[in-house]
Amino acid sequence: MAYCTEITDHSMISLGKCTKLKTLESRGCPLITSLGLAAIAVGCKQLTKLDIKKCYNINDSGMIPLAHFSQNLRQINFSFTSVTNVGLLSLASISCLQSMTILHLKGLTPSGLAATLLACGGLTKVKLQASFKTLLPQRLFEHLEARGCVFQWRDKVFQAELDPMCWKLQLEDVE
């Protein structure tokens, strides 16, 4: 249901009744909040993969229930959400978490990121903003890489994404 801009927390609450749900991609659904994410966490305990990128209204109050109830979660992308150090660090309680994509989180500090990376012992892949390379000690990355974690760096500057239809109209105007 990625980029379905009409999806709301009510939809997520209904979806939370799907107890065997393993993968959820609700990327780009701006009406989903932490309340909807909490409903998914409580009801969908088999969830292994979650993509909530660009769900701007999801914050720490959604991540904490996710960390408590989603103990099977292996992969998460929560880029462009309102998650801070607190929500990020709460994910350390998920022992099987292997992959995180963490891009453009306004409430994330280098020390919060470092604490989370150290606390999440099972990480094998982390996608981060390239600016963190210089903000964290090189020894931290060496330690994590020795534990088997691979880092992928993204250097994209934050940009508001154009509406796909608007972009198409602009292209037609140019031709």
Rank of each mutant, 00 (worst) to 15 (best):
I102C: 06
T109C: 02
V157R: 11
T116H: 15
L123W: 05
F158W: 06
Q152Y: 05
A160Y: 14
T84L: 10
S82M: 04
V83F: 07
A160C: 14
C120T: 07
A114I: 10
P110N: 05
L97V: 04
C96Q: 12
D60L: 02
L47S: 03
A119T: 06
L105Y: 07
S93T: 09
K168L: 13
T134C: 10
R154Q: 14
A38Y: 01
I58A: 07
N77M: 03
F78M: 14
S131H: 12
S90G: 09
I40Q: 04
D51P: 01
C120V: 13
L37N: 03
F80I: 04
L135R: 11
N72E: 15
P137V: 04
G87D: 07
A115C: 13
L66D: 11
H68V: 05
Q98V: 09
L118R: 14
C44K: 01
L37E: 02
K133V: 00
I76D: 02
A114Y: 11
L91Q: 04
Q170K: 06
E145D: 10
S79I: 08
K45M: 06
A119M: 10
Q152I: 05
L73M: 11
S61F: 15
P110M: 03
A115K: 14
G43D: 06
V83D: 04
K125Q: 14
Q129D: 09
F78W: 07
L144M: 15
F132R: 03
A114Q: 09
C149M: 10
N77C: 02
L123Q: 02
Q159R: 08
A146C: 12
L117M: 10
V157N: 13
H143L: 13
G62L: 05
T109F: 07
V86E: 15
Q71C: 12
Q159H: 09
G107T: 10
F132A: 02
L128V: 06
T101G: 04
N57P: 01
L66F: 14
K168C: 03
G87W: 06
M165F: 13
Q71G: 05
L140N: 04
H104S: 14
K133C: 01
H68Q: 13
C166S: 13
L118S: 06
V83P: 09
G107K: 01
L113Q: 04
K53Y: 09
N59M: 03
E175Y: 14
T81K: 02
